[in-house]
Design a protein around this nucleic acid. Sequence first.
DNA 1: CGTCTGACTCGTACAGTGTACGAGTGTTTG
DNA 2: CAAACACTCGTACACTGTACGAGTCAGACG
Lengths: 225, 225
Amino acid sequence: MPAKPSGAPQRRSRNTGAATASGGPPLSLERIIATAVELLDTQGVDGLSMRRLADRLGAGAMSLYWHVGNKEEVFDLALDAVLAYHPPEAEAHGWRANVVHMLEDWRAAMLRHPWSAALLPRRALGPSMLGRLELLSQTLSRAGVADADLNVAIWSVWNYVMGATITRGSFDRSPDDLAAAQRRLTELGERYPSIDRSRLLLDSDWDGAFKKGLDLLLDGLTPKR
Amino acid sequence: MPAKPSGAPQRRSRNTGAATASGGPPLSLERIIATAVELLDTQGVDGLSMRRLADRLGAGAMSLYWHVGNKEEVFDLALDAVLAYHPPEAEAHGWRANVVHMLEDWRAAMLRHPWSAALLPRRALGPSMLGRLELLSQTLSRAGVADADLNVAIWSVWNYVMGATITRGSFDRSPDDLAAAQRRLTELGERYPSIDRSRLLLDSDWDGAFKKGLDLLLDGLTPKR
DNA sequence: CGTCTGACTCGTACAGTGTACGAGTGTTTG
DNA sequence: CAAACACTCGTACACTGTACGAGTCAGACG
């Protein structure tokens, strides 16, 4: 029996210097995840296959499975890596600025890595997301939101950002798709006149709308001062 | 040359009565999509393969490709089928009730078909979604939202529902997963004290929180009366 | 009647996928 | 030295989406 208990994969990565067959740097969980993120950024969700990932690492496909239980875990870890939050060290701008910073950082991270929006609904909450939730929870609580309203407040803000990011992410497609959308929209002008008139899908100031809506929400959720 | 121009797949479905090899009812786009939804409901996103779908229809796998361009299109059509909105015929409850009804119906549909949340971020807006957007746009506009604020209002509400549904969807997992989550959460109580204290992930009254948050948003977005 | 055209079905084949299995390597420990 | 460990990886298998082309049948046209 070699090792590899499937119940709790170990991923110790002591990495005592053994290089891969092609002489590249040794495999490690960090390197695997970093390369996975790279691959996802350049090729999208469907572009990530275990073989391609291994190739980029100069390793055999099955070598990955020593460090990782299965492909899903690669997705989980890549997602979590990309969503990690490092709050700014010097801050005294008040609770609201902190919350807004964290949420905008979240949104920015997901837009920087568009595949994350497609992955998020499938995966459970990883440490990064839990950390953000915890921060949100603490900050709102400290801002004076009553315990009875806290959960509503947290989820409202959370959901808003989640939805805004996912919606937004589904709109920056390739120029081809964009041209097609333009064509289709004018053709559909009669069927969807109000959407057409407001140029909802075309001219929307996403970032501005995001910020405005968030402000409104926070105004409504926290005790007025 | 048989036919089948790949540029614009035809899917006419004249269906002159030719039955499938196994004697079942003939293939048609409607039957394919309905069965696809069935399969997605019972087996999830990964459970839908062209071969399985064809088997359920009593047809050969490649027969599907006469009616459908590729697998992605099956996803698109299934998603759109599930998200179609049929507003109640008799309504005079005012604009707000109409908006709320449509949004709750949307949320209910997505929770009834959990795979839809995973699919939505990947696909463009289909007719059903556009129809809902159009309705939302018209209703808010008629309710007195100024043109300048209209897009912000639409997207805020939209994003809220989207996020709420996706978040919520990622929490009703199998009993196994739920037990595991419970175990993990108490273990993580020290790392995420505020989440733990508020029992944010466990006891949350999702439906109540959804409605409250939505009310708050609508209050903030529409002219006060 | 024969032939033709188009609608539709489907068997085969191919390249690609995730990963189970087990043999291999080199290092550390007893 | 031997045994245990940490790790790598080639082969194999079941399964995927779908390109290709042959096959079936209904109705139209001569």
